[in-house]
Design a binder for these strands. Sequence first.
DNA 1: GTCTATATGTCGATAGAC
DNA 2: GTCTATCGACATATAGAC
Lengths: 204, 204
Amino acid sequence: MSSVKVPATRMKADERRELVLEAASRVFGERGYVGATTDAVARAAGVSQPYIVRMFGTKESLFLAVLHRALDRLMTAFRAVLAGHGPAHPSGATDIHSLLGAAYADLLADRGILLSLMQGFILGSDPVIGVHARAGFLAVYRLLREDAGFSPEEARDFFAAGMLLNTLVGIRMSADYDTDPAAREFLETALPTKVGFLLSLEGD
Amino acid sequence: MSSVKVPATRMKADERRELVLEAASRVFGERGYVGATTDAVARAAGVSQPYIVRMFGTKESLFLAVLHRALDRLMTAFRAVLAGHGPAHPSGATDIHSLLGAAYADLLADRGILLSLMQGFILGSDPVIGVHARAGFLAVYRLLREDAGFSPEEARDFFAAGMLLNTLVGIRMSADYDTDPAAREFLETALPTKVGFLLSLEGD
DNA sequence: GTCTATATGTCGATAGAC
DNA sequence: GTCTATCGACATATAGAC
């Protein structure tokens, strides 16, 4: 087993950047901001650790890039729904609530997006990351209130459902699906259309 | 300023343990599991760092103790409500939903409880902590379903509201209360009876 | 019961070659 | 655009005194 590092094939900056951000989202989502190492991100992206630092300057700005990428994906998906360009709801529902909820759950497909979002959300006490996390959170809130026409109570309940989804993914509730009836009941109640997909993500 | 370390006054093991757990809850809640250092916990508790390790063995088992303490507080508060011994609801409501919700929000008084709970919840991928976090989460779920008589949908919605509260505290949304109308509206909608208290917790 | 001193390991970041 | 080598800071855990 020769684990000699072969130089990664040259790539344009933008492509490599997106590739690294995707890897970083998964790593930050799994281990959290502090727990994730730039070395783990580098290995996940197939490049060297100093190159990660070279590209993003610091671990902190790498995380900020990951956070903003996640927020961009979220806002883009929501705007597509509001413009009538979003995917159909699995149950056939056509109301905005259901469609936005489904769009949010669909972000699960891009592993790490919701998890790194959530990691950012609990870093509110960090003087730099906290500012960005709150700004992003509130931007989504405004989109719901102003563009989607939600009432404050509807927006609150929508966010509550979203935070529950984030938490269920973060706690890896699907790991107990087969062995604990309560876990199974909870998952079937909270995200009936996504349980199968969650279970297919075995081993992080 | 002589910062020479004076030996902490001798104390019985149980008292010191509770004192350390309270300090550790705050530190873990603010910085997360990985971000918190045993040294920061030690300083917050007024003892030396090696003594923390001596008491709990490892940082991991210290966190597990913090997690279980938080779950104990939660379950105890809920059982008191169910036994009719809980505090009254600030709005005068007497239904179980409102009373349990108020009991949950009251845990905010013990700084760090809800935050370290949430920290545990997003550590599901950790092979040790994840197991304890899921077990605790599901124990609360069973209490709601079996002892409080909630339907699966009611339990889901109750948890959703709880996870939203945890997230709002974690992201320090109250930091934007005065400067961002959206933050203000959200906080007033999501936890009308607790905004004042949250704002009084200036500076973590 | 509690401390000081320190070994050991790890991580982010820099220097510099190709 | 990408790598290897390495420095310096910090954190957990151990050893052992009081």
